[in-house]
């Protein structure tokens, strides 16, 4: 087992190295409009150096003068030491900005995941136990609709109904207008209130997948021989489903939920942007659109690490939860 994990981690590192390289090469090939803009601004100032001179100075300053491969290695070297440089767009160290914003996304993601589990798994099980019934059809269609719903359209609808027509929530932002005047608990509730719509959006968009996954796996288990045996023994249907079938369905569910845990840190890029919630998603969206290479580079590599970690956790959990699985 330990050997397997070690091997997987090593492979992940190799993959990460190449992914990082592809991302770095991509970023370097982009027109670095940010540096050009800055050089242009600086050269406009009176008694300043020429644009070309500023260009060379700034590219050297930002480590952009090396070739792509040496540049990547120097970036890697710095990254190992935990130095990701200063964000161009936010003008603070990348890690500082990251640390500032990631926890909000994490909390949001956590709440969404909890709701997702509470809603999707029971519905999926109901759909599976009553296969081909009306409730199964309804649940399946709702799940598919959730998957098919474009985030931005759903968010706009929610805004129209709850922010504009009912006036319950603000359209944008994490804090209200008079946030600074509120007491500590008032500030907490203000933030909580602003997070309601984004969380609803994320939950509705994401429950479909988990619901279908639960249903498929539950159906598979229900068709297994040991369920037939349980029924043949004369157990009550309740017992069959909750003691025998559900516990076995938990194996893939735990695996996939465990695998999605690292994703909590990745932030919801689109949803946060739509609601202007200053989590890691919105923060990096702004940085990416502005051509902020250090921040984007960090965020992209961070996302890759999260994906790899998720896969790794899922695989390991699979072996841990299901004793039948033997890892060679």
């Amino acid at each position: 087992m330990r050997k397997y994990i070690l091997k997987r981690i090593l492979i992940s590192i190799v993959i990460l190295f190449f992914v990082g390289f592809i991302i770095y090469a991509l970023m370097r090939c982009l027109p670095t409009s940010y540096i050009e803009n800055m050089a242009r601004q600086k050269s406009m100032q009176p008694n300043s150096k020429s644009y070309e001179e500023w260009m060379t100075q700034l590219t050297a300053m930002y480590n952009m003068d090396k070739g792509i491969i040496p540049g990547y290695f120097s970036w890697l070297g710095q990254a190992f030491r935990g130095e990701f440089g200063d964000s161009w767009f936010y003008t603070v160290p990348v890690l500082e900005k990251f640390n500032e914003t990631v926890w909000l996304s994490f909390i949001m993601g956590g709440i969404v995941l909890i709701f997702e589990i509470i809603i999707a798994i029971p519905l999926g099980i109901v759909a599976a136990t009553k296969q081909y019934s009306t409730s199964d059809y309804v649940i399946s269609v709702i799940a598919l609709a959730g998957i098919s719903l474009p985030t931005f359209f759903f968010a706009s609808l929610l805004k129209l109904v709850f922010s504009v027509k009912l006036g319950w929530f603000d359209l944008f932002g994490l804090v209200g207008r008079n946030y600074n005047l509120l007491s500590a608990s008032g500030q907490f509730w203000d933030k909580a209130k602003h997070l309601v719509l984004p969380i609803v959006t994320l939950v509705v968009i994401s429950i479909g997948g988990l619901m279908r996954y639960t249903r498929t796996n539950m159906l598979e288990v229900l068709n297994a021989d040991y369920i037939r045996t349980a029924r043949a023994k004369g157990l009550s249907e309740r017992k069959v489903i909750y003691n025998h079938a559900f516990r076995n369905t938990l194996i893939p569910l735990v695996t996939i939920i465990g695998g999605s845990l690292p994703g909590l840190f990745s932030g919801a890029l689109i949803t946060e942007t739509l609601y202007a919630i200053p989590g890691i998603g919105y923060t990096s969206y702004q940085a990416m659109v502005a051509g902020d290479i250090p921040f984007s580079m960090f965020y992209l590599v961070f996302l890759s690490i999260l994906t790899l970690a998720g896969n790794l956790i899922a695989d390991i959990l699979y072996a841990v939860v299901d004793p039948r699985v033997r890892i060679s």
Partner: peptide, 18 residues
Amino acid sequence: DIFYCIPSMPIIIILGAA
């Protein structure tokens, strides 16, 4: 594996902005 790991949405956003 590498392509699976590349975060596609951010990449497309960056390319779009470029």
